[in-house]
Amino acid sequence: MSSLSFSSLCALALAAVSGGCVVMSESPLQQLEVHAVLGHREVAGVGCVLSNGAGRWFVVAPGRISVERSRDPLTVDCARDGAGNAREQVAPRAPSRFDTDKLIGNLIVKAGLGNYLDHHSGKGFAYPETLTVILHAPQAAAQAEQGEAGGGNVMF
């Protein structure tokens, strides 16, 4: 009788450890908050396109948007007439906290397959939750474009 209860206890313990680990990975989506700043002040009504290897999304800053996780950098391209524009890239990072329960469950149930798939699909990576882009004033942007195109004033 005691061996039956020991077996039941072991099965229950295994179910408890692996119960939350049946899903291969976390959600492929991540919610981000986007802000645009010009001259140390936040600017409202700035249209931003966010893109990575998984897709493209549009948000009006300040605002929140859900993007698909990827191991590719997230490009943030923002503009507003009269306020300026910005283009920045944000590198993804691996989760900073070490989740022992997930690791143990992964090893027991899937022999580490979930961590491998998360790493290669990008679902194991995350972008910073708050993105602040620095807008360049319209005049400065126009001067920079002229300088790049060779249309600026050149003195000898």
Rank of each mutant, 00 (worst) to 15 (best):
D81S: 15
I108G: 01
C78G: 07
A15Q: 00
E129H: 03
D72Y: 13
V59D: 03
D118H: 02
V76W: 02
H40L: 14
H35Q: 14
L50I: 12
A91Q: 12
E129C: 00
A86H: 08
S8H: 03
R69A: 07
S7G: 05
G152H: 14
Q30I: 09
V133Y: 04
A140G: 03
K110H: 12
Q89V: 13
H120A: 06
G122R: 01
F6M: 08
I65N: 07
A83R: 04
P138Y: 03
A44Y: 04
G53P: 00
A126C: 04
Q89W: 10
L32S: 08
G105L: 11
I104V: 15
G114H: 14
V37K: 06
C78F: 12
V90F: 14
I104K: 04
A36Y: 06
S25N: 09
V67I: 14
S27Y: 07
G55N: 08
L74F: 02
S25W: 08
S70C: 10
H40A: 15
E26R: 05
L4I: 15
R41M: 05
L50H: 10
I65D: 08
A140F: 09
E33C: 01
R41V: 07
A141F: 08
A144Q: 07
C10I: 13
I134S: 12
A126K: 04
N153S: 06
E129N: 00
A13V: 12
F156L: 08
L32N: 08
V59H: 01
V34W: 09
C10Y: 03
A141I: 02
V23F: 04
L131I: 12
P62L: 06
R93N: 08
V23C: 01
L117I: 15
P92E: 02
V46Y: 03
N153T: 03
V67G: 06
E88V: 13
V154D: 06
A91C: 00
G45W: 09
A141H: 04
P95Q: 07
C48G: 09
E129V: 03
L14H: 06
A11P: 00
L12V: 14
A44G: 05
P138E: 03
R93K: 11
E68Q: 15
V23R: 06
A15R: 00
M1P: 03
A61E: 01
Y116L: 13
F58D: 14
D77R: 00
N115A: 13
V43R: 01
T130Y: 00
K102R: 15
R41I: 03
L9D: 13
A111Y: 11
A13H: 02
S70Q: 10
P73L: 12
K123P: 00
G122L: 05
V37C: 05
Y127R: 04
A137L: 01
L107Y: 05
R64L: 11
R71F: 15
S18R: 02
S66T: 11
S121R: 10
G151P: 01
R64T: 14
E42G: 13
F6I: 11
L32C: 11
G114S: 15
A141L: 10
V17D: 02
V90L: 03
N85Y: 11
A126I: 14
R80P: 01
T75A: 05
G150Y: 06
L32Q: 05
A54D: 13
L107G: 00
G53S: 13
Y116M: 06
L103N: 07
E145F: 01
A61G: 01
S121V: 10
H120S: 09
G19N: 02
A142Y: 03
A79F: 05
